[in-house]
Simulated scan of single mutants.
Amino acid sequence: MSSDRTQAFEGLTDAYHRFRPGYPEGLLDRLREHVRAGADASWPDPWLLVDAGAGTGISTRTLRHAFGPGPRVVGVEPGRDMLAAARAGEHGGVEYVAGRAERLPFPDSSACLVLAAQAVHWFDRPAFYAEAARVLVPGGTVAVLNNDRDHRASAYLDAYERLMEDHGDHYRRDHREYDTVAEMSAQPGLSEAGVSTAGWVRELDTGQVLGMAMSSSKMAAVVRNLGEERTRAHLTALVREHFPDGGVRIPYVTRLFTARRTG
């Protein structure tokens, strides 16, 4: 695997595309409503919706589903494997371009939405929020959408996180816990930062659990340190211990953070 953080999912793309979850419809509705609430006649036609750190295109295609056929939807992704997979799997009327979230390839005041879904922890976040403020039209939305496994509500997830802490490369389960509202609020040109949350449960079988785990760049470090066979054996044993019936139930908390570009 490359030492370049933008290539962190090299070799993991197929599992990522197959096993990563989507996002709760209720929060997608909130996102759409937030964007529409800021619209005025000066906005470009069609609207430009940007998905920064698009990965294999899960969230890019989600934007198309949420907003319908009208807007132009563009996923921006620096990872070579991820970008190739997104383009190869495209059938939803969206576009993909190579680029970084901190240097979006769009002019000033051109986008109505800049979204980072399951990706902002990889960014230089202050630089990303400054870049979002640059490319957004007045009234436009910057949004961060995160699916977080709720390890505080599940003994299985607590053990899963402990496996990565014990055998990963300096992994900490709180590595994505930071004050996004405060970070958005600190960026000149952004205002009205807030958060909406939704709790839900994903049901998987053992094979899907293994597939999802193997799509993780953090679990990839465990695989490097223990070997794939031992890692899979550890994960299988955890499933059997906590879910003897084979039906794995993983609680999630999904958070949608939004802020608006001031005029």
Rank of each mutant, 00 (worst) to 15 (best):
G26F: 00
H242R: 04
G211F: 07
R224P: 03
L115W: 00
F67H: 05
G227T: 06
L226G: 04
H167E: 14
A117H: 04
R240H: 15
G89H: 06
A155Q: 13
H242P: 05
A119S: 15
F257P: 00
Q7T: 09
R64A: 06
Q118A: 11
Y160Q: 05
P24Y: 10
T62Y: 00
S217D: 10
W47D: 06
G38R: 13
G207Y: 02
D81Y: 04
Y156I: 07
A213L: 07
G199T: 13
A132D: 03
K218E: 13
L27D: 10
G140C: 05
R173K: 10
E10H: 14
H17L: 13
L238V: 04
H121L: 06
D14A: 15
R249G: 12
E77Y: 04
A237D: 15
H17W: 11
R30M: 02
S196D: 15
D14V: 14
R261W: 05
R36K: 09
Y160K: 10
L63G: 02
G168N: 02
R232G: 05
W47Q: 07
E241W: 06
H91F: 01
V76S: 01
Q118L: 12
A259P: 03
A198W: 13
T262Y: 10
E183Q: 15
E25G: 13
G89F: 03
A117N: 06
L113D: 01
P78K: 09
G139F: 11
R176T: 15
G92N: 07
A198F: 14
V144Q: 03
R230G: 02
G140A: 03
A159T: 13
P71Q: 08
D108H: 12
P71K: 05
E228L: 11
A39E: 14
D174T: 15
P24R: 09
G140Y: 03
V209T: 13
F67C: 08
A221P: 00
S216N: 14
R32T: 11
W122A: 08
T56Y: 01
A88R: 14
V181Q: 07
R261Y: 06
F257C: 00
E90M: 07
P78G: 09
E77A: 05
Y252A: 09
A220V: 00
A259K: 04
P46G: 10
W122E: 12
M214R: 13
R255N: 07
P69I: 12
A85N: 03
A233G: 11
A233S: 15
F128Y: 11
A220I: 01
F106N: 04
A117G: 14
D14R: 13
A15V: 00
D150F: 01
L31Y: 03
S3H: 08
G38P: 11
A133C: 05
A119L: 00
Y178E: 12
G53C: 06
K218T: 13
D4W: 04
Q208T: 09
D45M: 02
D81V: 02
G70F: 00
T60L: 04
R61H: 07
L136Q: 01
G199I: 00
R202K: 13
A130H: 11
A153G: 12
V74A: 11
D81H: 14
A186N: 11
L83P: 02
A41D: 15
A259D: 03
